[in-house]
Write a protein that binds this DNA or RNA. Structure first.
Lengths: 229, 229
DNA sequence: TTCACATCGGTAACAGTGTTACCACAATAA
DNA sequence: TTATTGTGGTAACACTGTTACCGATGTGAA
């Protein structure tokens, strides 16, 4: 039963998912990989990270678990692809933030976009930064994807430093890490259930952004103040 | 083999762990609970959070898994006890920080103690805040334990607000959350492998503390400045 | 003392996980 | 047509959390 490699048999009642799997198998493995990642992504978003299991993915694909192990080495390999998928979504979220000549406002907007990503794609967030897959450590490709997603933030800080609005005593990368980590901490504690409801957590988040940017842009503020006097 | 309930039999070669289990069983269940938590804590520290399994704990105890389910409802119940154990260690770490009349310095010292806790008890940290047990959400007792551990930080912020060194526009709890979450974010990203080696991560951590405290104590700094003029 | 009852806890199983050895089949090459 | 290669499904292994079962043990009453 199940899979007869003979193509003569009509589609019958095996369903559409099965057909796409058959189609992809006739083409290159790259399409098949994408199909598996999509199936896994669906499960991730519908049922959360812990529901993403090799068997569930293969069932949804209509194939055996062997396929997943042939295409990706193990579950972690599949998780890495999902990580990169999440990076794309995050980058997309950042892209939608309008450019602004007010760099402080721009920073706040980017921070807000990061919060929104955590809310709209909580399952992805848990997978990527939440330690949902205990064994998952970012490899070179993952870090590359992360940096690409974060490039918008990096460019902003760099520009602000060049314009003298943010001190250039610290390395740009360090400042990005500080902002990223601080905001991540709020989101992660909230997801973990430590910061009450979404409203309270969002208040903490926004206040964290304010405090950080106050310090970062402090030189400018002081300068503005002395100019006003 | 294994457990003969007859006490006439001498200790034989069953080992010391077994004897303590037998002893505790003769006493109340509270001692037995503590013994189980200790065994689980040993595994946690020796082999990490993912190694803490019901079977491993029961093997180390020299009893069946049933005991764990009788004493704690399920694995999560045991995890909660480990969480509280971690709170004690964290509180202990905070206790060792010397009091200081310089509240800013005191804040930096407490922050450093939090970092040290993450380094010295990484397994506990992962269990408590790292999401190592995906299903674990802090219940009322866990939150209570967390607050007790954090009380040192809470008192400090409260005092600084009363002395006018930190603005009292924000609620004390909110400020504590901001500091906690930001520092947690750095530790968590570092543990997750996103911030490079310990040295680089520690630099980010310290800089985060500096930026935050600069904003928090900003009013005072401005005040000092105007007093000097 | 003896006997019924209740409780405690060990055994063995269930359902689920990641992973892999095995082997039948299809496609290709000679 | 035959030999070889490789793809992929089946079924198993070693784990996990969890629980149904049931014998043994201790405890109460007669």
């Amino acid at each position: 039963m199940i899979f007869i490699h003979n193509e003569d048999k009509p589609s019958s009642s095996t369903g559409r998912v099965l057909k796409t799997y058959q189609e992809a198998r006739l083409q290159n493995t790259e399409n098949l990989r994408k199909l598996v990642v999509d199936a896994a992504a669906d499960i991730l978003q519908e049922e959360g990270p812990e529901a993403v299991t090799v068997r569930k993915v293969s069932e949804r694909m209509g194939c055996s678990t062997k396929i997943i192990y042939s295409l990706f080495v193990n579950k972690e390999g599949l998780a890495q692809q999902l990580y990169l998928e999440g990076c794309k979504l995050l980058a997309q979220g950042f892209e939608e933030v309008p450019l602004s000549s007010d760099l402080l406002q721009h920073l706040l907007d980017l921070g807000e976009a990061f919060w929104q990503f955590g809310q709209d794609h909580t399952s992805y967030y848990k997978l990527m930064f939440g330690g949902a897959f205990a064994e998952f450590k970012p490899d070179a490709e993952s870090m590359q994807g992360t940096m690409t997603a974060m490039s918008r933030l990096l460019n902003l800080i760099s520009t602000a430093q060049q314009q003298g609005q943010i001190s250039d005593q610290e390395e740009t990368g360090t400042l990005v890490s500080i902002i990223w980590a601080s905001l991540h901490g709020v989101i992660h504690l909230y997801i973990g259930g430590f910061l009450g409801d979404a409203e309270a957590a969002h208040a903490v988040y926004k206040q964290t952004m304010v405090l950080l940017s106050q310090s970062l842009f402090a030189a400018q503020l002081v300068q503005q103040r002395s100019e006003q006097e």
